[in-house]
């Protein structure tokens, strides 16, 4: 009866462990009953066994019946959102890596052939990674959502026409393109910042065809702040995601935006109040790159701008944040006004 054991194993090995033993025993009993019925108590031959198993059907079909209908990694309810997020992520990876590649190619044009190969490989692996992580994240959401039977609870609630969302007021509406563009921009900056921080600077293409960079940042120092900056980026994407889902300005969304502004201000102040993040040799590098010559009028202007900017970076960031905050408050005011 080896084949019966194999059949039962084929049906049950993918079922939840808790039910497995029970179903195994039940199937064993069923198959024995069916055999007995077929042979009327007589000798059981191989053909009988085979016919009984054929009657029960393909093991994966039987297993599917035991599992019920829910066979989604990502259910139709979540799929639209999944699709949007996936497109954003893949597009950002492609654009970001392409920009990095173009910069690198401009800096080292000699490497032609192998360089393109490397670019294609990194593009493919990154896209696969992006796809995998988005899918895993949604899979987890789906799994937990169903496990907590949250979806069922929603279904049980009575639906009332008064729950229908208001047609968005054009003044408070958020166009989908706005948060999407913002997420893509954020992701591209992240990729550039993480992958090639040393290219953030003044790039000079020499007449001889070589390129020299005078970087803005001290790579080593700013890298220690990367985890903090990544946190900020995650928050920023969360903020845009909420905007995308909400589709219009609400009091809660505005409140979250204000919180985000405060958080981003705190993080950026922490980073930029450390003067070590700036490249201490920037002015020398600039001279070495041949853009300006030491002691010239141009050099004086550049060094003034550089020193002023690095000193007052915190204030610039604060000013931008305040402007954005005022804008949000104004939006809020309009929401109030439109009610």
């Amino acid at each position: 009866m080896e084949i019966v054991k194999r059949y039962i194993y084929a049906v049950t090995h993918k079922l939840p462990e808790k039910q497995r033993a029970d179903i195994e025993q039940e199937l064993q009993g069923l198959i024995e009953d069916m055999l007995e019925h077929r042979t009327q108590g007589g000798e059981i031959c191989e053909r009988d066994v085979e016919e009984v198993l054929l009657e029960l059907g393909a093991p994966h079909e039987l297993a599917a019946k035991y599992k019920g209908n829910r066979k989604y990694l990502i259910s139709p309810e979540l799929f639209d959102l999944y699709w949007v997020v996936l497109k954003i992520v893949i597009l950002s990876i492609v654009i970001g890596l392409s920009v990095v590649a173009v910069i690198e190619f401009l800096l080292e044009p000699v490497r032609g052939g192998p360089f393109i190969g490397e670019f294609v490989v990194s593009l493919i692996t990154s896209c696969v990674q992006g796809f995998a992580w988005v899918t895993i994240a949604f899979g987890i959401v789906e799994y937990n959502g169903v496990k907590a039977s949250g979806i069922e609870l929603d279904k049980k609630k009575e639906w009332k026409p008064s729950q229908l969302p208001a047609i968005p007021n054009p003044q408070t509406q958020i166009k989908r393109s706005e948060p999407i563009a913002s997420i893509i921009f954020t992701l591209i900056i992240t990729i550039l910042f993480t992958a090639s921080i040393q290219f953030f600077g003044i790039i000079n293409f020499n007449d001889e065809g070589s390129t020299v960079v005078a970087p803005f940042f001290n790579e080593e120092a700013i890298r220690t702040y990367f985890p903090l900056l990544w946190g900020l980026i995650a928050l920023s994407i969360l903020k845009d995601g909420l905007k995308l889902v909400a589709g219009r300005w609400t009091a809660r969304l505005a409140a979250f935006n204000l919180l985000f502004n405060i958080a981003s201000l705190v993080i950026l102040i922490i980073v930029f109040s450390d003067s070590a993040v700036w490249n201490p040799e920037f002015l020398n590098d600039l001279v070495a790159s041949g853009i300006v010559s030491s002691g010239s009028e141009g050099f004086q202007t550049v060094s003034n701008i550089w020193n002023n900017t690095t000193d007052s970076m915190i204030y610039i960031i604060a000013a931008i944040t305040i402007i954005d905050t005022i804008w949000i408050v104004w939006k809020m005011y309009r929401i109030r006004g439109s009610k």
Partner: peptide, 12 residues
């Protein structure tokens, strides 16, 4: 009704 349908139905 075939057993392959009935048994899962009973569990459900």
């Amino acid at each position: 009704i075939d057993p392959g349908t009935l048994y899962p139905l009973l569990r459900r």
